[in-house]
Design a protein around this nucleic acid. Structure first.
Length: 451
RNA sequence: GGCGAUGUGGCCGAGUGGCUGAGGCAAGGGCCUGCAAAGCCCUCUACCUGGGUUCGAUUCCCAGCAUCGCCUCCA
């Protein structure tokens, strides 16, 4: 039984599925107006790990993750750079998916774009206006939150409490709204801005509407799980839910939110603070698997600091796993050790406890290494368990690499020199290979070469 | 002001009312090795502060301190 913390109820509870064997997940995707930052990377990795694990347990996963390709920030950038806004969104989306590929994040099963669903959004807004849950002002159409009974469910705060403090910020469109917390479903466009027709005037959809329309359309009412970063909990997810409630529809059954990436001082690292080291840089500088490893060793709900020490430690840990994979390559096929796999599942089923599962992975590697050293018969099944866990994690180990003929020849020469006790030649050959970037392991059974 | 989170060993980072305490990285010692590497074994350093509950608290409760997040469009 898979248990997961539900942000709406603040407890770890079973993820109940609408249809046994199938799980429908909605994940709020990126707004494509700039390069992906570390926070994007964390969210996509966390949910990639979730998805892979659920699939690994035999569930059929439908993961819908949107692309927000119309938004004020996109328009701002287009204006600033005097470029067509579509050029920005297309470029950024392309960069996004290339980055995801590098991170070994599987493409969602569905990638709806906001601009593809404008008609449906207009229909939805019309329904809300017709039932007087939404109203038209001078600058757009707003949802009235006052009569949403449990508004604040996700924020865990009542509307009054939210408004009582922190009021220094400017309230968006305050003058026109019935209630300060009302939010825009539709924004009228200014001249020159991208726009779509609507019964109330040309404009564009507000941010929170697309996810309601697309999740309900693709996954249906009462879908299983809605995911995203902690920062989306309020107002974004709250406002999605408010619209569904106003429509009289069942929305997500379970809510999952991942923690932030913080900087060296423990502060949230986000676009708006402008202190990002972006995801592309990270992957240029380090093995892209290192980020996945750092996140696996941290619980998804906690904050994670991405720093030199962290990443270095992950790179070293991966080196150990790679060395194991290379060493275990010659072991025969075997079924994964059942006890290990049961333990793995127990840990993962407990609110996706990847730190515990990762600890198990390293323990299993150590046991398998010891078994290889001792010539134990359980080595193959332990190694198979290691590979099985890595597969569920989306972690690809570098096993025995393809070695070019000249390198293989040098390795053979090295072995010959060692056999002849010509250690000067052997050491020289090893130094040469290492200088070319090869990892050289000379063992009793011969020299192993890998990258 | 409201709501919430966090504070663990050299570093990162789990976890638990006691049976002395994941895992990763780093450090030291040993085994293996021609020497290394890889691997195995061993070792070192903990639980923000002050109260309380308890036979016993790092773990529960209260208070405080510190850091952080959200409180209208950032994953």
């Amino acid at each position: 039984m898979f248990r997961l913390y539900d942000s709406a109820t603040s407890e770890v509870r079973e993820l109940r599925l609408r249809t046994p064997g199938r799980v429908g997940i909605y994940l709020c995707g990126p707004t494509v107006y700039g390069p992906p930052h570390l926070g994007h990377g964390r969210a996509t990795l966390v949910y990639d790990i979730l998805r892979r694990y659920l699939e690994w347990t035999g569930l059929e996963v439908r993961l819908v993750s949107n692309i927000t390709d119309i938004d004020d920030k996109i328009i701002d950038r287009a204006n600033r750079e005097s470029r067509p806004w579509q050029e920005i969104t297309h470029k950024c989306e392309d960069v996004w998916f290339r980055a995801m590929e590098k991170l070994n994040v599987q493409r969602p099963t569905d990638v709806p774009h906001a601009t593809e669903y404008v008609d449906q959004m207009v229909d939805m807004i019309a329904t809300l206006v017709a039932s007087d849950r939404a109203y038209v002002t001078g600058d757009g159409v707003y949802l009235s939150v006052d009569d949403i009974d449990d508004y604040g469910l996700l924020a865990h705060q009542s509307l009054d409490d939210m408004l009582s403090g922190g009021g220094e910020r400017e309230v968006f469109g305050a003058g026109n709204k019935r209630h300060p917390a009302d939010f825009a479903l539709w924004k009228f466009s200014k001249p020159g801005e991208p726009s779509w027709p609507s019964p109330w005037g040309d404009g564009r959809p507000g941010w929170h509407s697309e996810c309601v329309v697309m999740s309900l359309e693709l996954l249906g009412e009462g879908f299983d799980l809605h995911c995203g970063g902690m920062d989306l909990k309020f107002p974004h997810h709250e406002n999605e839910r408010a619209q569904a409630v106003a429509l009289g529809k069942e929305f997500a059954n379970h809510w999952m939110h991942n923690g932030f990436v913080v900087d060296a001082e423990g502060e949230k690292m986000s676009k708006s603070l402008g202190n990002v080291a972006n995801l592309l840089d990270l992957m240029d500088l380090y093995d892209p698997r290192a980020y996945r490893m750092v996140l696996l060793q941290t619980h998804y709900r906690g904050p994670v600091r991405v720093g030199q020490d962290n990443i270095d430690a992950a790179v070293s840990a991966l080196a150990g796993l790679d060395a194991f994979a290379a060493r275990a390559a010659s072991l025969g096929e075997a079924a994964p050790d059942p006890e290990t796999m049961v333990s793995f599942r127990d840990r993962m089923d407990d609110d996706l406890d990847t730190p515990a599962a990762t600890a198990l992975l390293f323990d299993t590697v150590r046991r398998a290494n010891a078994a290889i050293d001792a010539g134990g018969s359980e080595a193959a099944s332990l190694a198979a368990a290691v590979h099985e866990i890595c597969r569920a994690f989306g972690l690809v180990l570098k096993g025995a690499a393809d070695v070019p003929a000249d390198v293989a020849a040098k390795a053979a020469a090295l072995d010959a020199a060692r056999a002849a006790k010509d250690f000067a030649t052997a050491d020289a050959l090893r130094a040469e290979l290492q200088a070319d970037g090869w990892i050289v392991e000379t063992t009793k059974t011969g020299t192993a070469i890998r990258r």
